[in-house]
Design a protein around this nucleic acid. Structure first.
Lengths: 194, 194
DNA sequence: GAACGAAGTTGATCTATATCAAGCGGGGCA
DNA sequence: TGCCCCGCTTGATATAGATCAACTTCGTTC
């Protein structure tokens, strides 16, 4: 738990400096939560009330298509953040589902508490702005990825950039993340003999 | 010009309230710029130095694939913002190109000036955070769009949600925006007899 | 450690969309 | 006024990847 808070502190401090008092107040609003493998952090239709920091474990975010198939849109693990962030920011019902791929330990802060912190401290406001900026940069990069490469190129790039993810995440999820069927994913794996 | 500033004010005020003094200072850092049809706002490899407000006209953002084809990733028009925003935020070279589809009138603020404003005023910091949040929500929505619908469904949805765009933007650009060739786009148009 | 179900593999076929190619039409410019 | 270019259309063909189906392997549970 304290370790988790320390990890959060390291992550937050990278974006904006907090005074000891600010940090004491800010950090006091984060509560631990754990999730067993298979449990849901949020389901579509709900409004995201929390912003999460992932201390241990792996989460998967996905959307359900009308035909019943699901499409993975992202994964979070060690010292990453999670939650249906668009829903959290706009306080409207989400289209995303997030579940635990493995047992997971999280810290969370409520929307009301975070907004209060934004009002109270300029440093928190700054952290929020830069955090959003970073998420946005990541999304732009991902958009580029999806738009400018073929299925096979996306496969290769994921392999090169995040080989560890092949261990953490079942490949049917990786397949839909890359925009292909599990069969196609399997054939590519074979082709590259991984 | 004053009209443009008024329009910017209306847009900014929607996200965060500014005092008259804050607004006077903040708004004084925006300079007009115009762009003739075909001219570029930014090309890939450059670092985005400005953040733009589009007062009149239409801009297209696109990426060049390695095979030389280009993919439209977005359009900006009246009272929208533009620029290679990820490059602007991170001050690294961009992968995007942005050019004017029609003659365009813009307002712009430099990176240095905007950062100074963030330092100076909490209201600007707040505007920045919420602005980023909104961009992020839009990107999440777009991601959903691209991932969960077929080419034809995307075509239909664009037609329903933004019919005006069919007038503003040449259809070869809309085609690549929707992730299809101009030929496929044309055939769909015919099928729906638009 | 047997046995069940889920995940992954492999092969055969199908289909949406790309690609290639040729012709059409209208707006801008001499 | 006419010409030229570019954007659009239309048809024929090719192909990446999906779908369907059967089989294997692996990891959990009793």
């Amino acid at each position: 738990m304290n370790e988790a808070i320390e990890s959060l502190k390291a992550s937050v401090s990278k974006l904006a400096p907090f005074s000891p008092e600010e940090w004491a107040d800010f950090s006091s609003h984060w509560a631990p939560q754990n999730l067993s493998k298979g449990e849901f952090l949020i389901k579509e239709g709900q409004i995201e009330k929390y912003f999460y920091f992932v201390w241990k474990g792996v989460l998967r975010a996905y959307i359900m298509k009308e035909d019943g198939t699901d499409v993975s849109v992202g994964f979070s693990y060690n010292s990453d953040y999670s939650g249906a962030y668009d829903s959290f920011l706009g306080q409207f019902p989400t289209d995303f589902n997030i579940h635990a791929i493995s047992d997971t330990l999280l810290l969370k802060i409520s929307y009301a508490d975070l907004m209060e912190q934004f009002d109270k401290y300029k440093s928190v406001e700054r952290w929020g702005r830069i955090f959003n900026a970073n998420i946005l940069i990541g999304m732009a990069r991902r958009q580029l990825e999806v738009r400018s490469f073929s299925a096979e190129e996306r496969f290769d790039r994921l392999m090169n950039q995040s080989p560890h993810i092949f261990q953490l995440v079942p490949q049917k999820y990786l397949a839909s993340y890359l925009g292909m069927t599990p069969e196609t994913f399997s054939r590519m794996r074979k082709k590259k003999s991984i």
